[in-house]
Amino acid sequence: MVKTKLAPQLEINLPIVFSAMSYGSISYNAFRSLVQAAQEVGTYCNSGEGGLHPDFYPWGKNIIVQVASGRFGVHPDYLRVASAVEIKIGQGAKPGIGGHLPGEKVSSDISRTRKIPEGSDAISPAPHHDIYSIEDLERLVFAIKEATGYEKPVSVKIAAVHNVAAIASGAIRAGADIVAIDGIRGGTGAAPQAIRDNVGIPIELALAQVDERLRQEGIRHRASVVIAGGIRSSTDVIKAIALGADAVYIGTAALVGLGCHLCQKCYTGKCNWGIATQDPYLTKRLNPNIGTRRLVNLLRAWGLEMKEMLGGMGVNSIQSLRGNKEHLRAVGLSREEMQILGVKLAGEGW
């Protein structure tokens, strides 16, 4: 029995969490699939920055809500109903670019959820205009903690950029219980291509840096690290955990599970698969019950594969793997890359 008063925690059955995809960017049915699957598997689903449709309040135990610069749908109940609150500072696919939901996708239900007029753009600019420093971030973190009675962990999501380690350290010092880092391969339906493909750094490098820095500063225990951006398979999860992550966020992989074909036309609002659209002709193509089954299948399969891999490594629990870089070996990486990752070359012993 731990006597120390612990900071609020989230418990997950599998170190995989559905990342932030707002109702608005994805359809009601897609979101419903995600929350139902999260409940069934025992993990979480992130609401994204678009607020939470009242229909999903009953799933609050499996939902992490987001507070972003646009503050869409943020009100006391929204904060109370969720299991955790995440402050979105940056997004891996488009660091330095805000969120932007085109007016075409702002249907009546979405406008109700986001409290903006129907058909007008939902703009979340790049910065939170009230946050220009770590101290400002702390103010928001504690505003949320105050509003939720210090019962819920507050996460800060940042994009993986070259000085990510310092930012992560700052976020933890500002009171974050979870730091979420989003790498360059993060998916998005609506970001300028030049930004999507060129801004940001790969998540493995960022993660290794952050983990290293936090350990050096002696604050790694004060927060969990969740990474996102380019988790495409169970092996990616295993690698991420061995590099120091507590859990991973999956977004694109979950959507592919739902039927997404990566046609990259999300911004048109005409998703054929009924995922990234609000067109009633299209949204009904996705039956959330089928979607839930597919997502649960995906997570269960990854879970089983991860267990197999852990067995192969001779590790009996995923916790023992966390930050255990000795279980990783690099092939075809440069010395600098290996150094940053803290991983030895294949063939090197302990």
């Binding site: 646009g70 109700r112 986001r114 205009h129 009230d130």
Partner: peptide, 28 residues
């Protein structure tokens, strides 16, 4: 930044305000 992302309600100020007041105000 008074009234940041205000969704309803009123703020009356007798004097002056600083920068970025009333940004992201919404209505529905």
């Amino acid at each position: 930044i008074a009234g940041y992302a205000m969704r309803g309600g009123k703020i009356w100020v007798r004097g002056s305000v600083g920068y970025r007041v009333g940004i992201h105000m919404k209505s529905y």
